[in-house]
Design a protein around this nucleic acid. Structure first.
Length: 596
DNA sequence: GATGGCTGCCC
DNA sequence: ATTCTGC
DNA sequence: GCAGAATGGGCAGCCATC
C-alpha cells in the first residue's frame, strides 16, 4: 500500500466521525496507524502521528494502544503471556480460511511473514468491528490457557477480523509488531501528547515499569506521584564487550572497579514485607518477607529457585525498615555451585523448569545468588547514585552465606594490574572480567560503555574440515562444517569432533564454499551435503569440551565458532586427541581450583 | 511408555 | 548469547 | 553509538501419536 493512502487512513482514524465511537480505540485505526508508521522513514513524523493518535484515545484504549505499539500484549513487567508460536497460528489460519496448512506454509515461505499470510487468507468483507479492548480480553484469556486449548482462543480472536486487523492481531500474538518503532519513540510520543519533558516520561516509566500507566499518569498530570514499584522488575543494565584490558583503560580513565565475571543466570531480586496475603505463591514468602526473582526478560523465575527464597528473605531483618517503602532490589547472577565451587553454567539448565523443581533436582543442582548491585533500599531509589556508593551500601547490608554472596570486587588503577587480574581470571577458567566505572549510574535497559566485559574464548583448536553442508538460510554457500582432529602426532587417523557453523564473514564463506566444491569426494542430498578431502584447516574457539558418544573423538564441541581460516596450516598441523585431552584436563583443573 | 515436533526461555 | 543493519 | 531485528545452541516441558 502506498504511504499516502495509509496516511489518509491513519489521519482519518483521528478525525471526528461518529461521536459515539471517537476515542474508543477501534483495532482498524490502530492497524492503520501501524501501517503508516511501517511505511514512514522520518522518526519525527512517526512520533508526531503516534502522539496525535494517542491524544484522541480515551484512557483505557490509550493504555492498550501504548502496550500494543510496544509489541506487547501486557505491561512489560507483567509477562503473563508468552507469545504463541507459529504452528498454532498456522493451524488457526487454516481453520478460519479452510486452506490446507501446507498451502499456508508455502505462502509463508514466499511472503516471509506470517502476518502477511493472515492478511492474505482472512478476507472478510464485512465492516471492521474489533476494538483494542476486545484484543485485551482475548489476550487475557490466552494468558490463562495452557497448551492446545490456546488454539481456540486464537481462532475466536481472529474470527471477526478483517484482513488488516488480522495482520496486526497476528503480529501482536507473535509478540512483535515489526514496524520499526523503537520504544524510545513511544516514550517521545507520550511526551509530545502530554507536553511534558521526555526525561520525566522516561523516569516515570523506569519507576513504574509500565509505559501505559506512565502515559495515563502523564495525561492527568500525576507523574510526580510515580513511585518505585517493588515486585515489578526494572530493566537490567547491560555491559558492552572488549577483547583487551588495554581498551578498558582507554574507555574508563576516571577509575574503575573490577569484578569476577560470574557465568549464570542474570537475576533481579525483590525483597519486602509481604503485607496482606494475596495471590502470590506461598513458597515465595518466608517469615513474612516476600521474595521474587526476575530473569533478564522480566520473567518471574522465583519458583525455579525455592532454595533461594529463605536466604534472601533473611537479609530483611538486617536491611529493611518497616513501613510502606521498606524493601530491597538487588541485581546479580544465579550460579550453580557445589561445596563452594562454582560450576559451569550448563549445570543450571535443569533448574529452569517453569514449574517448581522437585526436591531431588534442587538437591542435585545447588545454587547461589551472587549479588553485585543494589538498586533500591527502603524508599531510596539508588539508580542515580554512583557505582562506588551503591557498592558501599551493598557491602553494608549483605551477610555472606552459602546461598547469598557478594560479588568479588576490587579497585584497580593501572593496566598492568588489570592484565594480571585478567590472567588470573582465565587461569581459574573464567571467560573474563567485568569492569565498571566508579562514577557510573545504573541505567536500566542500557548497554553502556560504563560497564565492560573483557572476554576471550577459553579454548582454541585447529581442526580440519571433513564435510560441509548448505542450509536453506545460507544457500548457496556451505555454512556448516563437520570437523575432525588427528589421533596423535604419530597417527594421522582423523577423529570427528563436531560441527561448527558460525564466525565466518561473507567473503570467507564464499572462499570456503569454493574450496568445498573443489575438494568434494562424495555428494549427498543433491549436493547440499559433501564429503571433502581433509585439506581445509580452521582455527575455532570452544566454550567447553563435552564428553559425547556421538563422535569418535569422544568429545563434542560446545558453542564453537570459527576464528579464521588457517591457510598456513595443513592437516598435519592440527590438534590431536592428546592435545585435546590435555586441554580437557586443564579445564577440569580450572573448575576445581576456582572458588568464584 | 517412548518418540518427535513444537514451544519457551536461558545464554 | 552474537551479529548485522539502519538511523 | 544505539536499538532493534535476526540468528544460533541447548535443554526441558507439553502434547499427539506411535
Amino acid at each position: 500500500m502506498p504511504p499516502n493512502h495509509n496516511q489518509r487512513r491513519a489521519e482519518s482514524a483521528m478525525v471526528d466521525r461518529d461521536t459515539d465511537t471517537v476515542g474508543q480505540g477501534a483495532l482498524i485505526e490502530f492497524a492503520a496507524v501501524a501501517e503508516w508508521i511501517e511505511a514512514a522513514t522520518s522518526r519525527s513524523a512517526k512520533i508526531a502521528l503516534l502522539s496525535r493518535y494517542f491524544a484522541q484515545l480515551q484512557d483505557d484504549p490509550l493504555y492498550y494502544a501504548v502496550h500494543y505499539f510496544a509489541g506487547q500484549g501486557f505491561p512489560q513487567r507483567e509477562r503473563r503471556l508468552a507469545p504463541i508460536g507459529e504452528l498454532t497460528l498456522v493451524t488457526a489460519l487454516s481453520v478460519l480460511s479452510g486452506i490446507e496448512p501446507a498451502k499456508l506454509n508455502a505462502h509463508l515461505k514466499r511472503l516471509g511473514d506470517l502476518a502477511e499470510v493472515a492478511a492474505l487468507v482472512l478476507v472478510r468483507q464485512s465492516e471492521p468491528i474489533l476494538t483494542l479492548e476486545d484484543v485485551a480480553i482475548g489476550l487475557e484469556q490466552l494468558a490463562k490457557t495452557q497448551g492446545r486449548r490456546k488454539l481456540s482462543w486464537v481462532i475466536r480472536l481472529l474470527e471477526p477480523a478483517t484482513s488488516l486487523e488480522a495482520k496486526y492481531l497476528t503480529r501482536l500474538l507473535l509478540g512483535d509488531l515489526q514496524i520499526g518503532l523503537e520504544e524510545a519513540m513511544i516514550e517521545a510520543a507520550v511526551a509530545q501528547m502530554t507536553a511534558q519533558p521526555l526525561e520525566q516520561i522516561r523516569w516515570g516509566y523506569t519507576l513504574l515499569g509500565d509505559l501505559g500507566k506512565t502515559a495515563l499518569l502523564a495525561r492527568h498530570n500525576q507523574l510526580t506521584q510515580a513511585r518505585m514499584q517493588l515486585f515489578q522488575p526494572l530493566k537490567f543494565m547491560l555491559a558492552s564487550t572488549v577483547q583487551d584490558p588495554a581498551q578498558v583503560i582507554q574507555q574508563l580513565p576516571q577509575g574503575f572497579a573490577v569484578e569476577t565475571k560470574y557465568d549464570g543466570i542474570r537475576a533481579q531480586a525483590h525483597i519486602a514485607p509481604a503485607g496482606k496475603p494475596t495471590n502470590w505463591h506461598p513458597e515465595t514468602v518466608f517469615a513474612g518477607i516476600r521474595v521474587a526473582l526476575f530473569s533478564r526478560t522480566a520473567a518471574d523465575i522465583s519458583l525455579s529457585f525455592p532454595d533461594l527464597i529463605a536466604p534472601l528473605a533473611s537479609l530483611a531483618p538486617h536491611a529493611l525498615v518497616t513501613g510502606e517503602t521498606a524493601g530491597l532490589i538487588l541485581d546479580g547472577e544465579i550460579v550453580p555451585c557445589q561445596n563452594d565451587q562454582i560450576l559451569p553454567v550448563a549445570a543450571l539448565q535443569p533448574r529452569l523448569d517453569p514449574e517448581s523443581p522437585s526436591a531431588d533436582r534442587i538437591a542435585s543442582v545447588p545454587v547461589a545468588f551472587v549479588v553485585y548491585d543494589v538498586l533500591y533500599k527502603d524508599g531510596a531509589v539508588l539508580l542515580n547514585h554512583p557505582y562506588s556508593e551503591r557498592r558501599r551500601v551493598l557491602e553494608s547490608l549483605l551477610l555472606e552465606t552459602p546461598e547469598v554472596r557478594l560479588a568479588a570486587a576490587q579497585i584497580l588503577f593501572d593496566l598492568e594490574s588489570l592484565e594480571q587480574r585478567f590472567f588470573q581470571a582465565r587461569a581459574q577458567g573464567q571467560e573474563g572480567l567485568m569492569v565498571k566505572a566508579l562514577n557510573s549510574c545504573y541505567r536500566p535497559g542500557r548497554r553502556s560503555h560504563e560497564w565492560l566485559k573483557i572476554k576471550r574464548a577459553i579454548i582454541t583448536l585447529d581442526v580440519v574440515v571433513t564435510a560441509a553442508e548448505i542450509t536453506p538460510e545460507t544457500a548457496p554457500w556451505f555454512s556448516n562444517y563437520a570437523v575432525a582432529i588427528r589421533t596423535s602426532d604419530g597417527d594421522p587417523t582423523l577423529l570427528q569432533i563436531g560441527k561448527v557453523a558460525v564466525g565466518l564473514s561473507q567473503p570467507e564463506l564464499e572462499t570456503l564454499s569454493d574450496w568445498i566444491q573443489r575438494y568434494t569426494i562424495e555428494e549427498f542430498a543433491e549436493g547440499m551435503v559433501r564429503l571433502v578431502e581433509p585439506q581445509i584447516v580452521l582455527e575455532i574457539t570452544v566454550e567447553q569440551l563435552k564428553p559425547s558418544q556421538r563422535y569418535k573423538s569422544g568429545y563434542d564441541l560446545h558453542d564453537a565458532r570459527i576464528v579464521r581460516i588457517r591457510r598456513d596450516k595443513s592437516v598435519n598441523d592440527i590438534d590431536t586427541l592428546d592435545s585435546l585431552l590435555y586441554l580437557v584436563e586443564q579445564t577440569q583443573n580450572w573448575w576445581d581450583s576456582s572458588e568464584g
